[in-house]
Design a protein around this nucleic acid. Sequence first.
DNA 1: CGTCATTTTGATGGAGGTCAATGAACGTGG
DNA 2: CCACGTTCATTGACCTCCATCAAAATGACG
Lengths: 237, 237
Amino acid sequence: MNERVVPIRYGHPHGPACSIRSPGTRPDQIDSGRILQAGDHLFHAGDSISAPCLVVGGVLKSYVSDEDGDEQVIGLHMTGDIVGFEALVRGRASCAIVALDTAKVRKIASRAAFGGQTEVMSDSDVILMGMYRELLRLTHLLRMNRGPTEGRLARFLLDYGELQVQRGCSREEFLLPMGRRDLARYLGLATETLSRLFGRFRDRQLLEADNNHIRILDLDGLERLAGMTCRGPLNSA
Amino acid sequence: MNERVVPIRYGHPHGPACSIRSPGTRPDQIDSGRILQAGDHLFHAGDSISAPCLVVGGVLKSYVSDEDGDEQVIGLHMTGDIVGFEALVRGRASCAIVALDTAKVRKIASRAAFGGQTEVMSDSDVILMGMYRELLRLTHLLRMNRGPTEGRLARFLLDYGELQVQRGCSREEFLLPMGRRDLARYLGLATETLSRLFGRFRDRQLLEADNNHIRILDLDGLERLAGMTCRGPLNSA
DNA sequence: CGTCATTTTGATGGAGGTCAATGAACGTGG
DNA sequence: CCACGTTCATTGACCTCCATCAAAATGACG
């Protein structure tokens, strides 16, 4: 509605408006997409939002800020993920979402789709699936946040590698889309601890890590470490 | 819908999770309602399930077992909650659900409800709401599992008191439906730590705790402690 | 009363958070 | 091009909090 900060706007500061238009755009998809630059917020906590968004490309993070200012990362969202489910229920965002690099998002069906007027198998199922994936991701993250820290990082790297494969990229070598700080907050660690973990992994020849450029040398070794914490999908459905 | 629920029965610190499903009882055989005794499983991880269940009364917990045997409590589910969303997507349970005391559950709409059935406010909305509440609960729990342990317990007690109020009971005095062990695992603590927390709270005149019988003496004090961790609903929507 | 599960209490060690300093990468402006 | 500031990653020193081990206390129940 009318809020102080406009939640989803389709004009962006610089760059051509709505550059790429997906081929199969259906009539009820009012939105052809919005481009976010690194650091741009899709919305802030408390903003009123009208529809969930599909992440078409790039990476975003969702976070909440504690009263003492430092933020806690709730999720990392990449291509194919859906963010902003709150739109379907209470219409206001419960956490902020910000782009980590250049990203593109597209609004998807509003609540009306659940009514049953249009052909339903499309967006409503997308939303249902996305919501379910989010449930899986959260339970997974929850389990990750207990147990030894080495297992958390190992599990994360393996899961991320798995995502890479699904995307047609290499499982062993990739660029992490987020900085140490965000990753640490996602795993529930201090950045220093995370740094030490990378160091330890490097010492043990488990991987090479030049900043965000990761090269995994010993998948089995990581798997063994990760097994100490838990198993489960980061994003499998 | 909102049935008056039998107050929580006291008396059995649930036995050693008699984990075997009663013969002849398949997870799918729940039509107008099913009664579970303390220790009965609604389903186990991996079971195939056909529809989500509404908790009509009582308390259940969901958990996963690590390979080394000890379990991790993912959720505590009470009247009005929905469990088993996996039925809508992949048809197999991803965690086990067991009754902590006598509980009643009822199957709700299967996926077909999303198909194009007419009335909008029906089961599909119930499911959507429930799923969303689950999302909220998980993000909340996630935030709880970081930060000082005192804050976690304080927050939990306050949230639980809030639930009591919604249920028409006292915010300051109630019976916890789960044992120390389960509560500890829910909060991500060792049982000894939880015990010590209760002891410390008692020393500071924050509450009286006779086993599961809790009487809160200083709401503000708890609130202050809880503030150090995070805010957020256990079950608000 | 004896057995078993749960809770409580004590003692100990270690994992990881905090504080602090250094180093590397990257502008920005002179 | 270089000095400077800023941000982020790394490394070190320290110390707290909490898990772990162990044992006693409480309670449930036959």
